[in-house]
């Protein structure tokens, strides 16, 4: 182990880490924005609404992320219409292409999680909401979606970690995020252990922080399920009164 090399490479690796976190943050934000309407369409009874989303989810969950990135980055350039379009200055950038693929990818997984969670919401709660006079939009906004977010959170935590690891694939289309930087340094110094292990430790640190943060959210959102902290003495007193 050459620790000097490890320390010398740290600034570059940390710059890559910033890109990785940036990619992840934008991916998760846009992915969620896309996943909510997709999930709502997916649970509709009308086949014309649910089937396109079903096919979309099936494609993005059934194929490797690497194929999806190559399909967007190299594949789209095959079409003259794309190359002559307004978006070409953006679509030709590896960063934008990788990001776009990640957003579509995570949206499919997240929509699937939300779909499962919405289906798991007890029917009685939806009926109660309707009986209170809520319109369909209100049922989604006030009952179904908030409940689905809570129910789907454990699965979504896994998706967040999966997506963090997925961002490493941006390096295959020359984006200099953490894995890309590490790979470049290894190609120059040929000391894979030091650099890759350092990169792996950074990923592990991010995973650790994310898992902790998501566990906190989960704890916070399940506070209505926890027993109320009532001091034992007080309970006894109340019984004495009764």
């Amino acid at each position: 182990m050459n620790f000097t090399l490890m320390i010398d490479s740290m600034p570059a690796l940390l710059r890559g880490t910033v890109v990785t976190i940036q990619l992840l943050a934008v991916t998760l934000t846009l992915g969620m924005a896309l996943a909510v309407p997709l999930a709502i369409l997916r649970v509709q009874r009308a086949p014309l609404l649910s089937w396109p989303v079903r096919a979309y989810i099936y494609f993005f969950r059934g194929t490797p992320l690497l194929v999806q990135i190559f399909l967007f980055y190299y594949g789209l350039a095959q079409f003259d219409a794309v190359r002559e379009s307004l978006f070409w200055p953006y679509l030709r950038q590896p960063y934008v292409c990788a990001l776009l693929t990640f957003v579509l990818h995570t949206a499919a997984y997240t929509a699937n999680i939300l779909r499962g969670a919405m289906e798991a919401v007890p029917a009685g709660e939806v009926e109660a909401a309707r009986a209170c006079g809520m319109r369909p939009a209100q049922v989604y906004r006030l009952i179904l979606l908030p409940r689905a977010f809570r129910l789907g959170l454990p699965a979504y935590s896994n998706e967040v970690i999966g997506m963090l690891k997925g961002t490493s694939l941006a390096s295959t289309v020359t984006v200099m995020e953490l894995t890309g930087v590490a790979n470049t340094i290894v190609a120059q110094s040929f000391s894979p252990y030091e650099i890759f292990v350092a990169a792996a430790l950074i990923y592990l640190a991010i995973t650790f922080v994310l898992t902790r943060a998501l566990a906190l959210v989960e704890h916070h959102w399940s506070r209505h399920m926890r027993p109320v902290d009532v001091p034992a003495a007080k309970v006894g007193q109340e019984e004495a009164h009764a």
């Binding site: 690891k165 390096s171 295959t172 890759f196 990169a199 792996a200 990923y203 650790f208």
Partner: peptide, 8 residues
């Protein structure tokens, strides 16, 4: 589980 598959 915390390290990218590509990196491994």
């Amino acid at each position: 589980r915390g390290t990218p598959e590509l990196l491994i």
